[in-house]
């Protein structure tokens, strides 16, 4: 399942909802991305995320389908926020559930690497002097995503 929303989310509640009443799940892995107070050596005071409504949901669904094809997943949830966010707030959540840990670990890693280079979101950082800057893509993110290509 995928969700694109402005509102903050509760990681514990999301895991609880996903696993509640199920006895077949053996492993749950979650990754949460947070707004941090620095980037490339510069102090960051806030973050704003723009997205492409419609295409964002399509891309995230495709990424989820890819993960479900590659690994034995019993459930999968991607939540990505947009709009203004304060320092320390969560931006993105990926939860994977599988009978054994390896599938859940690898699928969560894959989902994050792929959504970082495919899902149409753009970060804008605010700094202490009130300036806003569009964040540039990272070479390391591209490399991380490419790693999963050689597996296919």
């Amino acid at each position: 399942m995928i969700r694109v929303q402005r509102d903050i989310f509760d990681i514990g509640k999301e895991i609880e909802t996903l696993t509640n009443g199920r006895t077949d799940i053996g492993a749950v892995v979650s990754f949460t991305g947070l707004v941090r107070d620095f980037n490339d050596g510069t102090k960051v005071t806030g973050l704003s995320l723009e997205h492409y409504p419609g295409m964002t949901e399509r891309e995230l669904s495709k990424i989820e389908d890819d993960a479900r094809e590659r690994w034995n997943l019993q459930d999968c949830l991607i939540i990505h926020r947009y709009g203004d966010m304060a320092l320390g707030e969560p931006i993105v959540l990926v939860i994977t559930a599988s009978p054994h840990r390896q599938d859940a670990f690898e699928a969560a890693h894959f989902l994050m690497d792929w959504l970082k280079t495919k899902a149409p979101f753009w970060k804008q950082e605010m700094n202490a002097s009130g300036e806003t800057n569009w964040v540039k893509e990272r070479e390391s993110d591209l490399k991380a995503a490419k790693r999963w290509n050689s597996d296919s």
Binding site: G33, L49, H51, Y52, M55, H80, I91, V92, M112, L115, K116, T117, K118, A119, P120, F121, W122, K123, W134, V135, K136, E137, D141
Partner: peptide, 10 residues
């Protein structure tokens, strides 16, 4: 048709 820079979400 949409034009945009490389994505930076996550």
């Amino acid at each position: 048709v949409a034009f945009f820079p490389p994505v930076t979400g996550g």
